[in-house]
Simulated assay, not measured.
Amino acid sequence: MTDAEQREAARQFVNRWMGKGKEDEDGRSYWIDLLTNVLGMDNVTERLNFEKKVVIDGNTKRIDVYIPETRVIIEQKSLGKALDQKIRNSGDVDLTPFEQADRYNGKLTFDERARWIVTSNFAEIWIYDMNQKQPEPTKIALDELQSKYPLLSEKSGHYFITIIQQKTRKYKRPVSNQLAELIRKAIEVSEKEHPDSEYIFLQDNGKLYTDSMLKYHVNIMIYENDIRDDNGNYFEFRTHRFRHTFGVKLTEMKLDDDSIARLLGHKDTRTIPHYRRLRNEALAEDTKAVRDEMNELLAQYRREKENAETR
């Protein structure tokens, strides 16, 4: 799905769901629609567990939506229900939607425990990172969906960020769940401070960061911390080193040239052998000491053998 297609899918989703949503009747359709048509998740109905059973105080309760591969619990409420308001649950317990989901979470097996808890009332989606000691929600309003989250998407349980590259084109690169959360936070800040911009990382004055600016600040850190190369010279930093490092890491993963080219944002595979050569050179350097030691042992063995034969 291209960025333009995702924006259009988000716009259509907002139009379909604006002003409506009943917990029991619409919850399943809402999440299938969002995950499939906006976030591009494949085979949604096979990957989601609706009404997952959990036993609390001897009574069977049901988690509205559970995503096993990413360990996500979704607690859905009807339109108009405040997501920070306590609601009377069965058993005469007053809980917010998050507290209700967290209560269910505590009764799951360790391997099933939620990495993320999501609460929703159709008009808003609140996302809680359960790796935090006191999770605070990342909030997404339905009418912000088209403009706020077009650059971060999910496929097959993995997050991808859309990168706009000046020299080539727009492409997607996989990111970890932790980095995806940092990007969400950056989007929130950008949306608040620069609402008219389509970019995430901006200076206070609203201008984009440039390569030369990044290079300047990194080089200042190099001089201040006296970071030098193997020849004793100050380490020479260029932003292209990030690409080199990433390209070499991809060759270490034994990916094919086409996959590496796509992840690097290259139009073709002509430059990929360069990264493989860099990896081979690095491997030769890393193993030089071991190879020298082995050569010395072999030479010593040959000398001992020759001496024994001459006796």
Rank of each mutant, 00 (worst) to 15 (best):
D3K: 12
A4Y: 04
A4G: 02
A4N: 04
A4I: 09
Q12C: 07
F13A: 06
R16F: 09
E23I: 06
S29Y: 04
Y30I: 05
L35G: 06
T36R: 14
G40F: 07
M41A: 15
N43Q: 15
F50N: 09
V54T: 08
I56E: 00
D57S: 13
K61W: 11
V65D: 03
T70G: 00
G80W: 06
L83T: 10
D84C: 04
N89S: 11
G91S: 04
Q100H: 00
D102N: 13
T109K: 14
R115D: 07
I117A: 03
N121G: 07
A123I: 06
E124P: 04
I127D: 05
D129T: 09
Q134D: 13
E136T: 10
P137Y: 05
A141C: 04
L142R: 12
E144C: 12
Q146E: 15
P150K: 05
L151A: 12
S153C: 12
I163N: 02
I164A: 11
R173C: 02
L182P: 02
K185A: 10
A186S: 09
P195A: 12
S197I: 02
S197W: 03
E198I: 14
E198R: 10
I200P: 01
Q203G: 11
Q203S: 12
L208Q: 07
L208P: 05
K215M: 08
I220H: 13
I222P: 10
D226G: 10
Y234C: 08
Y234K: 14
F235G: 11
R238D: 10
H240R: 08
F242N: 13
E252W: 02
M253V: 05
L255H: 09
D256H: 14
G265Q: 06
K267M: 15
T269A: 04
R277Y: 08
A282S: 12
A282T: 15
R291L: 03
M294A: 02
A299R: 13
A299C: 13
K305D: 04
